[in-house]
Design a protein around this nucleic acid. Structure first.
Length: 379
RNA sequence: GGUGGAAUGGCCGAGUGGUCAAUGGCAACAGACUGUAAAUCUGUCGACGGGAGUCUACCAUGGUUCAAAUCCAUGUUCCACCA
């Protein structure tokens, strides 16, 4: 179980195609994993997720701990049963919430004293708490409880997060080994270090020494420039073991995905496709479109003629724009549907190209076609 | 026919002598969104001008006043109640 096999490698970039064996199926990489924080990929049913070839989805430890809570998940027979998803699930540890809900808490090496964002009640998050909750969730892949630091962060702050992440990784692993079933669940380590090369090296060294079945890159896509992100990925590509899956956490912007794949990343997850979908922004091969825009009011062509999704095959831009303007639920659904399919297909196309030996061409073409000035700040 | 009330920017609706080109909300338009406190948030929103500013504006006309969306008169339209 949890064997990772590289089946093809690009000769000129770091891209690789692989297979990762989990209890709920084999994941073909590179892969994009839709985020389903609260036991649902917002606006999408499990059947629809299958239809667009979602191989694996995410759930969130912190959010599911608060609602519905461990007891109900446990009675349901785990997260798979509860939400009726029979494919692989990866659960985030709650580490990201230490970052995104930072105002609500006090962090020490021991734990995170936190207030629920829902009712303000006190709760304590720790590596042990996270492992226990993820055990109950029964995800295929659990993540170490880490500390993601904000950007920009001073070297001192970033170093503190690296130290704490290593400390917590050891505690996560120890608790996991003692209590969780490593045949049913894999625990991935997370490398931090912000945009500092020395800290990335140090974090990688410390986390890799703990020998996890897979490794994640955390602390990126938090506001740093794309160049800074790529520099970190270039470095980590030289440090991370070849025979273990590499997961770039929180990345889903199309160009970041293809550039990430080119730097040896196998797994991605992001809320961008669904969140932007709900807010009527879509990604297509030629770039990014705000579908609320008046320019689409009388455009009776498909959203993306090259896309095979339900929205693109059945509706016009004019109609989709109308749904966006009127705030109809179907609009949120169709845009999410399209964005997820588009993003998943990026990984699929990359994989095909890697296997065919044409990844460099694919990368070049994708970048030439995709026009957007998102995060184009020179640094 | 009588009595009372109301008319404000695309719509709804505050404002009852100067700080009002006029609060809010909606609509419209534009922007943001990267391990989800997000079907959310931000900006613009009379015209012209880069701006200082200028002009046109709170039903109409006339008036009071240094000054009127705000006060007075008349008219018009609408609403309510009584005949």
């Amino acid at each position: 179980m949890f064997e990772f096999k590289v089946i093809a490698e690009c000769k000129t970039t770091g891209a690789r195609a692989g297979e990762f064996v989990t209890p709920h199926g084999v994941i073909k990489t590179p892969v994009f994993m839709p985020v389903g924080t609260l036991a649902t990929v917002k606006a999408m049913s499990p059947a629809e997720l299958k239809e667009i070839n979602s191989q694996i989805i995410l759930g969130n430890t912190y959010h599911l701990y608060l609602r519905p809570g461990n007891e109900i998940i446990s009675k349901a027979g785990g997260l798979h049963e509860f939400m009726n998803w029979d494919g692989p699930i990866l659960t985030d540890s709650g580490g990201f919430q230490v970052f995104s809900l930072a105002k609500l808490q006090k962090i020490t090496d021991e734990n995170v004293m936190c207030r629920s964002h829902i009712d303000g009640s006190q709760l304590i998050m720790s590596p042990e708490w996270s492992m226990e909750t993820q055990r109950i969730l029964g995800s295929d892949i659990a993540m170490c409880f880490d500390q993601c630091c904000e950007f920009p962060a001073t070297h001192e702050k970033a170093e503190e997060a690296v130290k704490r992440t290593t400390l917590w990784a050891k505690r996560s692993r120890n608790f996991f080994q003692a209590n969780n079933d490593s045949n049913k669940q894999a625990l991935f380590g997370i490398i931090q270090g912000s945009v500092y090369e020395d800290l990335r090296r140090r974090s990688a060294e410390e986390i890799l020494s703990l020998d996890f079945p897979g490794y994640a890159i955390g602390g990126l896509s938090v506001g740093e420039s794309h160049e800074a992100m790529y520099r970190s990925l270039d470095l980590l590509n030289t440090l991370m073991p070849v025979n273990k899956p590499r997961y770039l956490m929180g990345v889903g912007y199309p160009l970041n995905i293809v550039e990430g794949i080119a730097r040896g990343v196998d797994m991605f997850d992001c809320v961008l496709p669904t969140r932007n979908g709900r807010n009527a922004t879509v990604f297509i091969n030629s770039g990014r479109l705000n579908m609320r825009g008046k320019t689409h009011a009388e455009d009776f062509s498909p959203l993306d003629p090259e896309c095979d999704c339900y929205a693109c095959k059945n509706f016009t831009r004019a109609y989709l724009r109308h749904l966006a303007i009127t705030g109809e639920i179907l609009g949120a659904r169709l845009f999410s549907w399209h964005n997820l399919r588009f993003t998943i297909r990026i990984a699929e196309r990359a994989r095909e190209a890697i296997i065919a030996g044409t990844f460099p061409e694919f990368l070049k073409e994708f970048k030439e076609k995709f026009h957007d000035d998102y995060h184009s700040d020179p640094e």
